[in-house]
Design a binder for these strands. Structure first.
Lengths: 176, 176
DNA sequence: CGCGCCATGTAAGCAGTTACATGATTCC
DNA sequence: GGAATCATGTAACTGCTTACATGGCGCG
């Protein structure tokens, strides 16, 4: 159900198409939520049925037509109500690599090292992209406090992860 | 599908009941995965059908009978195959609080502060429990490297989160 | 006598993923 | 000519959550 409020949050900043919602979602929210265009389009339809958003059809001569969504009053009220009244659900992480970590005792040193290197590479690449996005966002002169805070979260998360990997490597070497 | 390997990992350490699997899962894996007894019992049944695990029924005179599960050879092979061959899927986080963060611009200073305090309290309580579990685990003389690494991950994650919250509070004050 | 722990399961429903499906434009 | 981007959707399936359901034991 929270995906709904993530999308309402995006639309609350400015009117956007479904396609834009997907793009913005992936740019600004992958650090703490995940979804696909498939789920997002469905949720937009549901929210429109419930009158939380409306759309205006924009006929574009040549390129495909598009629906530009904006919040209704009801939508804005519901978004704020959710933010301040709805009790916080605990955060959920699903990280396969950490499952693999639990069975390190039955893997060989090489296998463990390969896995760790793989995950370090993955995380470094994510961190680089996040920093790039932060630079891009800063250079736009945009100062949306929400975006500033969540991008920083993304960076800190990746940095913590990489530190932990480095520590884990050391730990394993010491134990061997 | 990964939940399966989390459970196989638990059972690989020593034969356990479904109830034990649930308990151990919640003690050692909540930092990076989430599930419920409902899903776990179902998955155990499926895995037994596929001959990755077997059980022995233990009749307990007075208390309810229990099924003690252990890995089959097939199960152990599949677990290791998964760990070293299956490509890593990216980690997924679902954190409602960070969705709320994105709409800070439409909330009042008090509302934001209340939300932040709430989340700080939540995270402090999680961190305290994790540290407690680490102490308990250390005092057992157990030195399972998987557990050492993942508990440390849990602690570092919570510490990062709290640091970020503190930073966010400062940031919001500076902007005001 | 009630609460928490041990112990196991099922059913209904919602959330989320993957694959299928289409098509124009722009840039190289 | 082909790839990337803009643009929108549906179908089938799997995963996950919430609620329902039961019951004995040990402790205070």
């Amino acid at each position: 159900m929270s995906i709904r409020y993530a999308l309402l949050g995006i639309i609350s900043k400015k009117p956007v198409t479904g396609y834009d919602v997907v793009t913005i979602f992936k740019q600004t929210m992958i650090y703490f939520w995940s979804s696909t265009h498939s789920q997002i389009y469905k949720e937009l339809h549901k929210m429109e049925e419930e009158e939380l958003i409306t759309h205006q059809l924009v006929i574009q001569g040549t390129s495909p037509n598009k629906k530009v969504y904006s919040l209704t009053d009801k939508g804005k009220k519901d978004l704020i109500r959710w933010a301040i009244e709805e009790p916080l659900k605990p955060a959920k992480i699903k990280d396969e690599f950490l499952i693999k970590t639990t069975i390190f005792p039955i893997l060989s040193a090489e296998e463990i090292n390969q896995l760790l290197d793989e995950v370090i590479e993955r995380e470094q690449s994510i961190l680089a992209k996040t920093k790039e996005w932060k630079e891009h966002f800063n250079s736009q002169g945009d100062s949306d406090i929400g975006t500033i805070l969540t991008v920083e979260y993304g960076i800190r998360y990746s940095e913590m992860y990489l530190e932990w990997c480095k520590w884990a490597k050391q730990m394993i070497q010491d134990k061997a």
